[in-house]
Amino acid sequence: MHLPKKNDLLIGFTVSVLITLFVNFSMLMRNYNDNAKAINMPDNFPMPVPPQNNDFLYFSLIWFFIYAFLLFIVNDQLYKLGDRIFRKKEYKTMLLVAVASVVTAFGVFKLYPPVNDMIMVNLFDIRNRFPFPHPLETEHLFVLLTVMLSVLLVRLLNSKQQMMLEYEKLKTEKLQNSYNALMGQINPHFFFNSLNGLSSLIQSEEKEKTITYLNELSNVFRYILQSNKKELVTLAEELQFVKAYTYLLGVRYEGKLFFSMQVDTPFLLLWYLPILSILPLIENAVKHNVISKQYPLQIDIYTTADNMIVISNKIQPKAEESSGSGIGLKNLWGRYRMLTGKDIQISNRKEYFKVSLPLLNSPAPLP
C-alpha cells in the first residue's frame, strides 16, 4: 500500500493531537489545578499538598495520540484499498472501512490494560500512588468515531477537489476542441476566398482599394491568430473585427451582400462575449443563402434592450442546399455555454433567421 500523502498525514497528525487533548482535557485541568494549589500553598502550611506525579497523564496523552493516528492511517489506507477492490462502489468501501476500523479499535482497546501494567507498574511502579482507572471504553469509542468522521470528511473534500480539477480539464479540452472546429470551419474557404479577392483587386489595378483590402485582411488575420489566447472580448473589439471581415465580404460580393451594424445602447460596447462569436453566424448566413444581384442578402447586427447582440438575415435558401449539419451552431452554443454559463437563442420564423447572443457585464467566466 502507498503511504498517505503529506497533506493527509498532516491532517491526521493535527486531528490526533486535538482528539488527544480533548479526551484528556479533564485530567489536564485537574493536574493543572493540583499543581497550582501546591505552588501557591504557604511553606509553613501544616499539611502541604504532595507533589503530583505526571507519569499517568503522559502515558494517557501518548496512548490516545498513537491510537487516533493509527486509526487515521488505517482508515486512509482502507479507503484506497476499497477503491481498488470495489472500483469506486462507495457503499462497499465504507462498509469495509467501518468493519475493519471497529476491529482495529477493539484490538487496540484490549491492549490498553496490559500495556499500562507493563509501562506504569513494571517500569514506573506507580500503582499505589496513582490508581489506574477504568479502561475508558467511552474515550476509545469517541476517538474511533471522530477519526472515522474526520477521514470521511477529508475524503469528501479530496473528491470534490479532484472533480473540480477534472471539470476544469474537460472544460479546457472542450474549449480547445471547439476552437479547433471553428478554425477548421473558417480556414479552408475563408483564406482561399480572401486571396482570390486580393488577386482580383491587384488585376483591376485599383491601388487604393487594394491597400485598404490588405489592411483589413491583416486586421482579420491578427484577430483570428490571437483568438486562442483570449476567451472573452468586449463587444467593441468583436465589432471592430466584424467591420474588417465584412469589408472583405463586401468586396467579394460587391452589390450583392450588405451589412448593418447598430448599437443603440453605447455602454454595451464595454460588455463581453466569447471571441469570434459573430463570425460563424455571418459565415453561416453566407454559406446557406442565395446571394445575387436579383436576390441580395442583408445581414443585420444590432443590440437589444435585454443586453443581447442579434445577428439576423432573411432566409434565401439555395436550391441545391441541404438542411446542413448545424455543427457550426452546435460548436458556438457549446463554447458560449462553457465560457458564460448562458445559452444562445435561435429563431427561425417569419422568413428570418436570428441568433441572439447574451452579453456579460463582467469579463470573468461563470463557474
Rank of each mutant, 00 (worst) to 15 (best):
T14W: 10
T20K: 00
N24R: 08
N31S: 12
A38C: 04
A38R: 12
P42G: 15
V49T: 09
S60C: 04
D76W: 01
K92G: 00
T93N: 15
M94R: 00
S101D: 14
V103Q: 08
A105V: 08
I119M: 11
D125R: 02
I126C: 04
F130T: 12
L136A: 15
V143M: 10
V143P: 04
M148Y: 08
V151E: 00
S159W: 01
E168H: 11
K169A: 11
S178G: 11
Q185A: 14
F190K: 06
F192I: 11
Q203V: 10
E206G: 11
E208D: 14
K209T: 03
T210W: 12
E216Y: 04
L217A: 09
S227L: 09
K229C: 09
K229E: 15
K229L: 14
V233E: 10
F241P: 06
Y245I: 05
S260E: 14
S260T: 10
L270R: 15
W271S: 08
L273Q: 12
N284A: 08
K287D: 01
V290D: 02
I301W: 03
M308E: 09
V310A: 07
E321D: 07
G326Q: 08
L332F: 04
W333M: 15
Y336P: 09
G341V: 12
K342A: 14
N361M: 15
A364Y: 12
